[in-house]
Amino acid sequence: MIQYSDNEMMALAAGRFIKDGDIVFAGTGVSILAATAAKRIFAPKAVIFFETGGIDPSLDEIPMAVADLRAMAGTSLNSGLIEAFSIVGHRKLHTVAFLGAAQIDRYGNLNTTCIGDYFKPRTRFSGSGGACDVATFASGVITFMQHEKRRFVEKLDYLTSVGWYKGGNSRKELGLRRGGALAVVTNLGVLRFHEETKEMYLAEYFPGVTIGKIVESTGFPIDTSMAVEADAPTPGELQILREEVDPQRLICQAVLAAPQK
């Protein structure tokens, strides 16, 4: 039987969403693993870029932060934040952003700011960074989460980045022209959003994971009627991931820590 880590399964499950021609906004951790896997395995004509301004780096080594020198090596262009955000929201481009979060709600809204009261938080996290911005401007957002009840909550302690907002048409009514939550990839499976209500549903469960486990790890009721078992990684996919994407095994083996950027 093939052995693989949660991060490897998550990277591949997310990578499958990327199509040739997509412009992929990557962070670090499993996000950059997924973006690079997408390009090397599923969509060679996708372009990876970073909010810091690095566009289409060669990624011979995996960056450990979005400002890592590896995000500016072998690029087609090195610029800055303003330029990077002009790409995220560009009307001619189909941009997909990979994000992480400490909390998520049923509409895919994200919290990367704090747990508890904003002014006196029990736990303070890094804050928005570029997350609120890409959630505003990108064509779609894929979020990586550890699947735990305390992270999949009825109500966020702080809404940092807007997904489908209050569901239905509410995102558009805010004045946001496009975008929204495309999928959530966790260590247990893949969740997507209903076309009309914009509520989260279980689309795929990973091999070895039960639907019951996912239901009990989610802090709100979740529709599982459309769930199917996800394909396990193939030996070929894992080989590319381990030997080309992350040869130093910095992220392939690591346990996901949230929130990430």
Binding site: G29, M64, A65, P121, R124, F125, S126, G129, K261
Partner: peptide
């Protein structure tokens, strides 16, 4: 501030986190 973190070396900057908390 927008972001107090150091990538994989400190997902949230430690003294920033303490000062806010």
């Amino acid at each position: 501030i927008a972001y107090g973190g150091n990538g994989r070396y400190a997902p949230t900057c430690v003294r920033f986190k303490k000062a806010v908390q």
